[in-house]
């Protein structure tokens, strides 16, 4: 019975503590790595980050405004393969795919009219015979102050 209790305590502790550690690491990673990539654009202050595993996707919806200069910075922690992302408009047309830019983590753009865009982020699936890797992925936005 002692062993059962021990396992229960360890399991509970791991489940409670692990997400906090992961989140904290994710925030530190987003601030130190991803935010730096926004320079010379000003970070808007929003925070979007999550732990993703190889093969997983995330989506972000945001309105971008006309006549503003934007930079999107998307980065994954070092243990992950290159993060793939594409930008789609409201009619689901693909406007940009970083596969065509050697998986660049940043994209600079401006708009002639305001649009709601969807950003699809994907961690490519790894070798099926190996354990899939998980890591932090952050999506950050910068703009030029006018």
């Amino acid at each position: 019975m002692k062993k059962v209790l021990k396992i229960t305590i360890i399991t509970t502790a791991v489940l409670l503590v692990f997400p906090l550690i992961s989140h904290a690491q994710c925030k530190a990673f987003a601030k130190k790595i991803c935010k730096e990539e926004l320079s010379p654009y000003t970070h808007d202050g929003n925070y979007h980050a999550a732990i993703l595993t190889e093969g997983e996707e995330a989506e972000l919806y945001k309105t971008f405004y006309s006549d503003q200069d934007y930079r999107i910075s998307i980065c994954g922690s070092g243990n992950l393969p290159d993060v793939e992302f594409k930008i789609m408009d409201a009619s689901k047309n693909v406007l940009y795919n970083n596969r065509n830019s050697n998986y660049s983590g940043i994209w600079d753009f401006k708009l002639e009219s305001s649009q709601q865009l969807k950003i699809m982020v994907k961690i490519p699936a790894g070798d099926a015979s190996e354990e899939p890797t998980s890591g932090c992925v952050a999506i950050m936005f910068g703009f030029k102050v006018k």
Partner: peptide, 13 residues
């Protein structure tokens, strides 16, 4: 089941 983010303009933006 996907991770979905809804991003509003921040107060700064």
């Amino acid at each position: 089941a996907k991770k979905i983010f809804y991003s509003l303009p921040s107060p700064l933006e």
